[in-house]
Design a protein around this nucleic acid. Structure first.
Lengths: 198, 198, 198, 198
DNA sequence: CATGAATGAGATTTCATTCAT
DNA sequence: GATGAATGAAATCTCATTCAT
């Protein structure tokens, strides 16, 4: 069509501005005014497209989680060998933290809502579940093909993601603590070593 | 002296009340009024003992991090064998998340200040450094005694703590995702397996 | 002509929707958006037909007052005897409150504009004047025919209308306070008794 | 006590300022800012003493209704004869409208909440009930003493109050419509005539 | 030391009105 | 005629912080 979807465009524009604001000022320290200024729109229009601040935040969460999933999925797409595929998964997951630090930061900011907002917790849970599943599927395949030992795919997927999150966390607090590339190599090697048949 | 330190007592009383408030209402959703009510003191007196809300928060951070360190140190105290000592460290770290979920939650709430408050980030970094050191020391001893392989103690300490953080995180979002005790066993076994001489 | 007056039709459609909104949400708690939704038109078109919200409100007032007048006039039309005619006037006035409670409610909502909007006050005054006149005319006729005493028709009309308003008011606040039909009978009897020759 | 009750004083100050604001700008057209300015205090302090705007409004309603009751009660106090007492009640009720027009106006402004706020409706109902009772008691005494006919005291009280409300209403919309004193005389005479033994 | 009344900045949200299409 | 996206003013309410007592 010649006429672009104004509503979708505007919503995306506002959501992207919100991500910027969260990155800059943190989950709780930005105002609708900030978002409006960043997006270059009026305060009123944000409430025209989003019910309220919570509604906007949920859209941000959806976008961030969705984008991360898309990146990892596209990285793994062309690989078929389970070992290589798992290596790519781990590498991609670690890489996202470095390449899109803001996204990871935004993600973390949502973590504080664990006890406060049930809906946020549920969306994050679902995101983690999807993330684990896409990793577990690879492991399962490897187990079936006999290249991986008889491990519990879900547990191993959890441990892999846990390592990514935990390693990134310490690094985000202090980037001088270790060379990210180096520890990623060590971590990746040990994680693989735990499941491949020796 | 015989006279107890009223100031220190009051400060501690207020800090403990603040921890309660953060647990209940979240890092950003509690007010000085809440703290005053919870501590059973007036709003004014909080500002007498603490410069402002940020100052109070730093004291909370100190307390929480310090308490966690103390618990783990006391758990490891009596053990001398490096393998057993490392096992205790891992077990204790995992256990804190379950036994004092609120503390861990409060801790997490501070994470979101990474980009916002340099001072908070530094205190957390220092806490993590201490935490890693106490773990690395055990590993180093094991390496020296020949029971652990020639690994980088700091890196392995980082990976151990990363796994604890990451595993806990997923579990806090959804406690049904895995049996905590079970995954802790798997994680502990694999982490040890990565460094003990085979 | 054969072509119906679209403008008048649209205006009426909007005014009726506004009455509905006032009934549902109250004089001050409805928005132009509500009216648009209720009327099934866009927000913009309302401002095409009405200067602004005040202008729309004046049209609503006209409609409500006019409708009430029409009902009462049609009820009295066929009666010629002054005593019967007055009885019908009183009965009809009392009945409107019960049968079209919303209209009366909307009417009342306009009362609060007494001190705020001169124009509203004037329109209501004119409506009351008309209302009194139509009652006073009946009384005057009765006086001339000798069936009513030498009372001041305007005063008596005012008192009759006052009683209707006052009785309705108390009843609208609490419908259990008295049986409406019963008090209407008592009130009607006493009002008549005050002016008919004994 | 030497120390006056600051809280009570401040609350009263704010409530009185609110009455002024309602009189000037109407029930819905005044802001907390207006009240603050009128009372000569900050916006914040109003929310310190009152939960929210609704809470403040309920206090206003209580004050206005209470004050009116007090005035009428004190006017009737010294009279014992039922006929005279009823005359005083009617006169006092009519007089309040004239002498404290603002109060009556504020009262009217609350009427529009009939359909919107249950709590307001209930408080007004209770106020009307009290008002009717104090009138009905006089009538009942007169009936017992044989100076009044065997009328229903509650109904007659309702009709008296209805007349006061209704007469006042028309007059408030247009003060030129009749001489208030004169119609009050007529109304009072007819109301009494309806119940005294002839 | 301790209180709590008071302040004022700022946050979210609503909404009449305008105007390009 | 008709739409609905966009604006911006204004409203309510919260809260860290101050300060007289």
């Amino acid at each position: 069509m010649s006429k672009p979807d104004v509503a979708a465009e505007r919503k995306d524009q506002i959501v992207r501005a919100t991500v910027d604001c969260i990155t800059k000022h943190g989950y709780h320290n930005f105002s609708m005014q900030d978002v409006a200024r960043t997006a270059g729109v009026s305060k009123g229009i944000i409430h025209y497209y989003f019910l309220n601040k919570d509604d906007l935040m949920m859209s941000v969460l959806d976008k961030v989680a969705g984008d991360i999933e898309t990146i990892i999925a596209s990285d793994m797409e062309s690989i078929t060998n389970p070992i290589d595929k798992l290596k790519v998964f781990i590498a991609a997951a670690f890489d996202i933290v470095r390449s899109t630090k803001e996204y990871y930061q935004v993600n973390m900011d949502f973590w504080t809502q664990i006890n406060q907002k049930k809906e946020v917790r549920q969306v994050i849970s679902r995101h983690y579940a999807k993330f684990r599943d896409s990793c577990a599927k690879v492991i399962e395949e490897g187990v079936n093909q006999g290249v991986f030992r008889q491990v519990n795919p879900q547990h191993q997927a959890s441990l892999i993601i846990a390592t990514v999150d935990g390693v990134s966390l310490q690094w985000l607090f202090d980037e001088t603590v270790y060379d990210y590339a180096e520890i990623v190599k060590t971590a990746g090697a040990q994680l693989l070593d735990s499941i491949v048949v020796r």
